[in-house]
Every structure is written in structure tokens, then in C-alpha cells.
């Protein structure tokens, strides 16, 4: 399953589907980093609204994405984690430490706009 990556100005938006396999996630990780380089994006928003399970592998992949993108000088925001999914994640000890989070896409964009304003 391909993850669509949308380019909106300096921001890349990747929208996850519900049933992503490990291979899909690995594929996405490579794809995102390449595109950040290609478009010289300042930030990446990963929208996980459709994901009904976030296990240790998915969570680790998100962290890796965020770290790799930071090495490219850009910022990552994870948006759309569902309340039930968040509850299951903290039970598992998965807290996405060091990665920015926001309620949804709108909030994620607002967060980045604010951030860009402060650094410009």
C-alpha cells in the first residue's frame, strides 16, 4: 500500500492508511527522507488519523522518521493519534518522546506556522 505524500509549500504531508504493513512503513521512511531532500522542505506532517493500532514497530518507525528528518534540518509533527490508540500506546510504553505531536492536520499546520514565524 502506497502512502500518499502531499507537498504544500515548505511542508510535506504524509497520510497513513489503516492497514500499513512493516514493508509499507519502511518504504515510507525512505520516501519521506528523499523528498525532504529533493524539495528542501522545512517540515513533515505525518497524519495517522486512520491508524487504529500503533504498535512498537510503527511507533519506532515514526521516531526514526522524525530523527532522520531532523538530521536534514527539518521538523516532524505527528498528527491525528486517536484517543484509544494513545491510551494503548502509553500502556505499551510508547510515548514518541522528542517528537512533536498535534491534534490533527489543522493543528499541526498551525504549530508549524507559529514555529516558522519565530525562526524567520
Amino acid at each position: 500500500m502506497e502512502v500518499p505524500i502531499l507537498k504544500q509549500g515548505a511542508v510535506l504531508i504524509a497520510t497513513f492508511q489503516a492497514a500499513l504493513s512493516d514493508a509499507d512503513l519502511n518504504h515510507l521512511r525512505m520516501g519521506l527522507v528523499q523528498q525532504v531532500v529533493k524539495f528542501r522542505s522545512r517540515a513533515v506532517i505525518v497524519d495517522v488519523t486512520a491508524m487504529d493500532v500503533m504498535d512498537s514497530f510503527a511507533s519506532r518507525t515514526l521516531r526514526e522518521i522524525a530523527h532522520m528528518i531532523r538530521l536534514r534540518g527539518a521538523e516532524t509533527v505527528i498528527v491525528g493519534i486517536q484517543p484509544e490508540v494513545a491510551f494503548a500506546m502509553v500502556q505499551l510504553g510508547l510515548t514518541l518522546e522528542g517528537v512533536a505531536t498535534a491534534l490533527d492536520l489543522e493543528e499541526g499546520l498551525a504549530y508549524l506556522t507559529q514555529k516558522f514565524k519565530n525562526t524567520d
Partner: peptide, 28 residues
């Protein structure tokens, strides 16, 4: 198969009458 297994697990949990919160814990 991991994806298929957890989808089936969620479906069964809902069928048994678990809340969506519990179904998420089970699927995870």
C-alpha cells in the same frame, strides 16, 4: 499477516462486546 491478525482480533473483540478502547488494546 500481522495486519490481518490484529484486524480479526479487533472484529472479534467488538463482537464479544468490548468497548472500542478495549478492542484497541486487544488489537495492539
Amino acid at each position: 499477516d500481522i495486519v490481518t491478525a490484529r484486524q480479526r482480533g479487533r472484529a472479534l473483540a467488538i463482537e464479544v462486546g468490548f468497548s472500542t478502547g478495549d478492542a484497541t488494546l486487544i488489537a495492539t
